[in-house]
Amino acid sequence: MDLIIINIIDGLIYGLLLFMLSSGLTLIFSMMGVLNLSHAAFYMLGAYFAYQISLVIGFWVGLIVAPVLVTILGALVERYGLRRVHQYGHVPELIFTFGLFFVIEESVQYIWGRNMVPYNSPESLNFIAINLAGGSIPAYKVFMLLVSVAIFVALYYVLARTRIGMIIQAALSYPKTVEALGHNVPLVFMGVFGVGTGLAGLAGVIAGPSLTTFPGMAFLLGSIVFVCVVVGGLGSLTGAFLASLLIGWLQTFAASYNIGAADILIAMGYEYPKDVYYHPWRDLWTLTLPQIGPILPYLLLILVLVFRPYGLFGRRDS
């Protein structure tokens, strides 16, 4: 029972981290109508920037400055890269972001090397915050949780309750009309792209010390973020939120329980083979849930696309 509660909390922390990435991605998608394939690269940049700053000044300065740097970089990419490519249609945009991913990934390896870097959580958060029957949750994880929740609330407030949010939402759906009303739509786009990548950067800053800062981090998390966005429905913030939590829990619980195919087969009435290592069905008999855990989100992705092609909360049908 205690394990279940701990798993729920762990899954929540992981899911909210995914949300920080997928929220920016889904906003950018609503805007451009195109997936930003380089999104996870900005996540990695956030972590490496924060690492560099933490070496010189400290973790807390990095927490603020690194996402700002990533935001500026993202805005520059939109202003001088994507905006030019935009006029040629969606495919060039997609290819542009695809190329950008590798450029950023290789640049990071060139500057910081191919080994992992020692980017660690600050001393002041190196204590156990919660103790739950045999398992402990470090203060840094609680801090991650709080930052993610704060971002979710702030994002929701800005988009739903402020004038800027109304203009953004209007510009997403009816750019021509909003432009006719005298608003600078390209600036809105630049801002959304900047903030979207900045959110990815912030996710990197807080995930770096927990999930390790190394050159493969973008690739490792990148694919799963697309799953969150597509399952939630492209362009839907609520969808991205729920899908991120769902996938966070799915992965955590799948890795937690060693339910094997053998258990199910025995329950179905089959007999466990005597020398399982030489059995023709050995791979099936020895299969366990944690081993198939990483592919479960992709299975979900396929099922959602088959039964609800627009995702759980998607509205776009163009």
Binding site: L3, Y14, L220, F253, A255, S256
Partner: peptide, 8 residues
Amino acid sequence: KDFTPYAR
């Protein structure tokens, strides 16, 4: 991506 569940 996250080894926490294994650790638990």
